[in-house]
Amino acid sequence: MSGTPDPTRSTAQAAGPAGSAAAPSAPGSDGREGTVRVTRQRRAVTGALEQLDDFVSAQELYRWLHDRDHRVSLATVYRILQSLADDGDVDVLRSGEGEAIYRRCEVTGHHHHLVCRQCGRAVEIEAPIVEAWTARIAAEHGFTEPSHTVEIFGLCPDCSRT
């Protein structure tokens, strides 16, 4: 985990109760607009993600927060990360071991990642060839509205040298 901040999308916030704020969120399953309380814990988690360049597991993020004296339970870290993922504010991948890992990305549109298996370094990539292939394969089989996930794991240049 490194410490260079990633740019993030800004969200307008309205004042909320007792040190929290309410931010608009996507409609729920019932179609009604909802709000997300921006608590001290949510600010700590989102602030940490802004400082970290690489994908991180919930447990790694929990340890990072506690090393910096943020009092957030592991269950709360998981809940906040899931909420951020549901809202499209973080990308979620599965590590080689199958663990969910999270990162705020510089690119807000559809993209893919190259991820180092050893150090976790991630590079965001666009892959127009993959997009065209996905659409063609779906159409050949009569599928519409295809979606996909492509993540490539390997060793980054620094880890390959060691």
Rank of each mutant, 00 (worst) to 15 (best):
M1Y: 06
G3P: 07
T4L: 11
P5Q: 08
P7L: 10
T11P: 01
T11Q: 06
T11W: 10
A12D: 11
A14W: 08
P17C: 04
A18K: 12
A18D: 15
G19T: 02
A21H: 04
A22P: 00
A22M: 07
S25N: 05
P27F: 03
D30G: 10
R32Q: 12
T35D: 09
T35V: 14
V38S: 05
V38M: 04
V38H: 06
R42L: 15
R42T: 15
R42M: 12
R43N: 13
R43K: 14
V45G: 03
V45E: 01
G47N: 01
A48D: 09
Q51W: 01
D53L: 09
D54G: 14
D54C: 08
F55E: 01
F55Q: 02
V56K: 11
S57T: 15
A58F: 03
Q59G: 12
R63S: 07
W64G: 06
W64P: 12
L65N: 03
H66F: 02
D67A: 15
D67F: 06
D67N: 12
D69G: 03
H70L: 02
R71V: 13
R71P: 03
V72A: 07
S73T: 15
S73Y: 07
L74K: 11
L74Y: 15
A75H: 12
A75N: 07
T76Y: 05
V77R: 05
V77Y: 08
R79P: 10
I80V: 15
L81P: 12
L81Y: 03
L81M: 14
D86T: 12
D86H: 12
D87W: 08
G88A: 04
D89S: 01
V92D: 08
L93A: 11
S95E: 00
S95H: 05
G96H: 06
E97S: 14
G98F: 13
G98I: 10
E99F: 08
R103G: 01
R103C: 05
R103H: 10
C105W: 02
V107C: 06
T108H: 12
H110P: 00
H111T: 03
H111C: 04
H112Q: 09
H113S: 08
H113L: 14
L114V: 05
L114I: 04
L114E: 11
V115P: 00
V115N: 00
Q118N: 10
Q118S: 13
Q118V: 07
C119V: 04
G120W: 06
G120Y: 10
E124D: 11
I125S: 10
A127H: 13
I129S: 11
I129G: 13
V130D: 00
W133P: 05
W133Y: 12
W133I: 09
T134G: 01
T134W: 01
A135C: 05
A135W: 04
R136E: 15
A138L: 13
A139Q: 10
A139H: 04
H141V: 09
T144Y: 04
T144W: 03
E145V: 02
E145G: 02
P146W: 04
H148V: 00
H148R: 13
H148T: 08
T149V: 15
T149Y: 03
V150S: 09
I152S: 04
F153C: 05
G154L: 13
L155K: 05
C156F: 00
P157I: 08
S160K: 09
S160N: 07
R161P: 09
